[in-house]
């Protein structure tokens, strides 16, 4: 096991307002990490800082490199489909990704499209919320990256789609790669997490092994997460 992601003394401000400060985080390879925090806590910002689409002070190293341009090539993060024309067909989006990313794996992409029942003939504007999330997962996992970032992939989708998305993560995430999944409701993904990282009060409030929480605190992940907001209960 080696350090795949290392964040040191990261500070990020926007319009003179401090968003994140003193962020230090080390995650090793081959993990699935839950990035938890309330809406607006800075989870998406942290993901954008990791890929290099936002810039802060401090050092972020992914797979041994801290240069933003190089770092980007190690990270698969489908930030928003908003940049693409809403009249674009889903099949064209896959073609576009294949032409842009040298690490795009066509065989895996086809398996994902089939498994998630993605209709390549639909226009982006015609996609339901669940379909959109499935498309994002398929695009993200189609790349052979070291680090995968999923930003709230379960927002407002039905339980069948959720199961499919979770299964596609378990099925296609390369073994040595690490995945960070952000969510503000942890129960739905608790069983597949190795670790949780909580963003609170503009910094990393806690970073723990999921099974250690269950073993040491005799509580569930959701319960532990909620206890952090009740104040005065955490032990570190």
């Amino acid at each position: 096991m080696s350090d795949l992601l290392k964040i040191e003394n990261l500070i990020y401000s926007h319009s003179l307002k401090n968003i994140l400060h003193d962020v230090n985080l080390t995650v090793s390879d081959g993990k699935i990490v839950g990035l938890l925090g309330e809406n607006g806590a800075g989870k998406t910002t942290l993901m954008r800082l990791i890929t290099g689409s936002a810039h802060g002070k401090g050092t972020i190293t992914v797979a041994g490199t801290s240069k933003p341009a190089e770092r980007k090539s190690h990270v698969s993060f489908t930030e928003h489909l908003g940049g693409l024309s809403s009249g674009m067909k889903v099949g064209k989006v896959f073609d576009f990704y294949q032409s842009v990313y040298p690490d795009f794996n066509i065989a895996r992409s086809n398996s994902l499209i089939e498994f998630l029942d993605i209709d390549k003939n639909l226009k982006l504007s015609a996609l339901s919320k669940g379909m959109k999330e499935k498309l994002i997962i398929a695009l993200t996992l189609s790349r052979q990256a070291d680090l995968y970032l999923l930003d709230e992939p379960f927002g407002g989708i039905d339980s069948m789609s959720r199961k499919k998305i979770i299964n596609s993560i378990l099925k296609w995430k390369p073994e040595e790669s690490t995945m960070i999944i952000s969510d503000h409701y942890v129960t739905e993904i608790a069983s597949i997490l190795d670790e949780i990282v909580v963003v609170k009060d503009k910094t990393i409030n806690c970073h723990k092994q999921a099974d250690e929480i269950r073993e040491d605190n005799d509580m569930g992940i959701e319960e532990f997460y909620e206890s952090l907001y009740e104040g005065g209960k955490q032990d570190d």
Binding site: I32, L170, K171, E175, D194, D211
Partner: peptide, 13 residues
């Protein structure tokens, strides 16, 4: 990996 899928847990666990 198949067991991980069968029970919905991650491979490390």
């Amino acid at each position: 990996r198949q067991l991980a899928l069968d029970v919905t847990a991650n491979v490390n666990t």
